[in-house]
């Protein structure tokens, strides 16, 4: 992301807009700047701010006069008065920031926007997680903190070391250079992103171990982690296995994403026999 220095009037409206707090006004230059190391290329400043496209020279003059009179500005808080933000072409490894941070950009590896995975949202047609199995979405960096791939790798290596398998159709898994070790490519390790989801699947018996492991590794990773934990309900639509287990283990939950089972296979594809029996 770039702030066009010829257009910027240093109004500061964009400063609170940035989810990573990467924008500041350089008082010497009297222009807004982006801390490139902190910026995750999420595009919020460029995409979500409304713009006026006013003449920057005129705006600076008005602001200068108003400041002299100690007038308080009360502009719309989400408007860039001169449309100063510009999206620049990104190349790897920096491009990976945008892919993992900008929700309207498609993950090239899975073809899905956002965090790039269907999770259990399509479990009724994909059956990633069956009854008696447990799926996990371990999300790093969100809300509002961000994470570097080096820290994600610490988690994936720990999980791999403990014999835990990764979900195949997931952008982090697809990035791995060695899935058996949880290794990520060396050149992206220092890149910062807004968030990423590591997906794994285990048996019910392993839930306690995995959750403890995640919490333990989080102590070494300077970010926030949000865990989603899923299962398939029984034929009555009840979950009498995972929910009671979580309650017994002392993991509170109040919110859930519930797949209502309305999906059908409609593409003309050959369905494997073992898939037919489970759907």
């Amino acid at each position: 992301m770039i702030i066009n220095q010829k257009k910027c009037v240093a109004c500061g409206n964009c400063i609170p807009v940035c989810p990573m707090g990467a924008i500041y006004v350089d008082t010497g230059k009297n222009r807004a700047q982006i801390n490139d190391d902190a910026c995750v290329e999420c595009g919020t400043c460029y995409r979500a701010m409304s713009t006026e496209n006013l003449n920057p020279v005129l705006v600076r003059m008005v602001r200068k006069a108003a400041r002299w009179f100690r007038f308080r500005f009360e502009p719309e808080p989400d408007v860039c008065p001169t449309g100063s933000f510009e999206m620049n072409d990104l190349e790897m490894p920096r491009l990976i920031r945008q892919i993992f941070s900008d929700p309207v950009v498609e993950h090239t590896s899975t073809g899905i926007k956002g965090r790039g995975t269907e999770e259990v949202k399509t479990n009724d047609v994909n059956l990633r997680v069956d009854t008696g199995e447990v799926g996990y979405t371990i999300e790093f960096g969100r809300p509002g903190v961000g994470v570097r791939f080096r820290d994600i790798q610490l988690m994936t290596r720990t999980l791999a070391k403990n014999g835990i398998k990764f979900e195949k159709k997931n952008p982090i898994t697809l990035l791995m250079t060695d899935e058996s070790r949880g290794d990520l490519p060396e050149d992206i390790l220092n890149e910062k992103i807004l968030s990423a989801i590591v997906e794994i699947r285990t048996t019910l018996e392993e839930v306690e171990k995995v959750l403890k492991l995640v919490h333990k590794v989080n102590l070494q990773i300077d970010t926030v982690i949000a865990i989603g934990i899923s299962t398939r309900c029984d034929t009555n639509g009840e979950d009498n296995l995972l929910a009671p287990l979580l309650e017994n283990l002392g993991y509170p939950f109040s919110r859930a994403k519930t797949n209502m089972g309305l999906g059908r296979i409609t593409n003309k594809i050959e369905v494997k026999d073992n898939m037919k029996s489970t759907l």
Partner: peptide
């Protein structure tokens, strides 16, 4: 659950949100 029940639909799968884990006090 209630929305499903009122329409006679059983849930297929459920993903619970566990509490945010923030040991470094960022939030």
């Amino acid at each position: 659950k209630q929305v499903g029940k009122s329409c006679g639909i059983n849930r297929h799968s459920v993903e619970y949100a566990l509490a945010l884990n923030d040991p470094h006090d960022h939030l």
